[in-house]
Amino acid sequence: MNSFARLVMREIRLAWTGGGLWLPVIFYLAVATLYPFVTGPDKVLLAKTGGGILWIAALLSTLLPIERLILPDRQAGVLDQLAIRGWSDELVAAVKITGQLVAFAIPLLLASIIASALIGLPEEKLMTLLLGLAVALPALSGLSVTISALTAGLNGASALGGLLLIPLAIPILIFGAGTLSDVPGNAMQLLAATSIAIAALSPFAAGAALRAGRV
């Protein structure tokens, strides 16, 4: 196993053992459980709006682990040790993004199947939802690591992270929810293009934030 894979495996292990994985998934499922109580048992309404709610829940659930993605490693000196070994901050950010993506993607997609059943999403929309989330997850992982790097160590990092993440994720949300509309147009292609752009830029933005935060 090379060093990059070893570090990614460490990120996955930390996500699974540190509670940073199950909390977002439980939150995601909780939203899906509660939403029908708000709208009532109107299957047509649930099928029409439920997909959008799941997209919002997926976006917000990526916010929950923000405080544990960077700060513990910075405080423990792990980021310094990697820098001494010649790892660029951008590469470390790429490790974190990859780890977050791998750790978070499968549980979220599995949870989406349950959430869709809870909301009563039609089967064809479930497949579109799963595809859309799979396409968007690299961007959401990139954004969460970037925001985590920007806010690590700041007071109220979670709240600040939300304020920063939500506007940046709006294109993902628009195109993601658009894929579930009755007239999706090119929403999936636009979602993929946006996700690729954000995922490609995130290591550089997060790396710059890691460097700026080193004291």
């Binding site: 460490r10 930390l14 053992t17 405080q75 423990a76 000196g77 792990v78 310094d80 040790q81 001494i84």
Partner: peptide, 14 residues
């Protein structure tokens, strides 16, 4: 090759 030992342990606590 450099190695640093400072006040940060850099070892996973778990």
């Amino acid at each position: 090759k450099l190695a640093l030992a400072d006040e940060n342990l850099a070892l996973d606590p778990n």
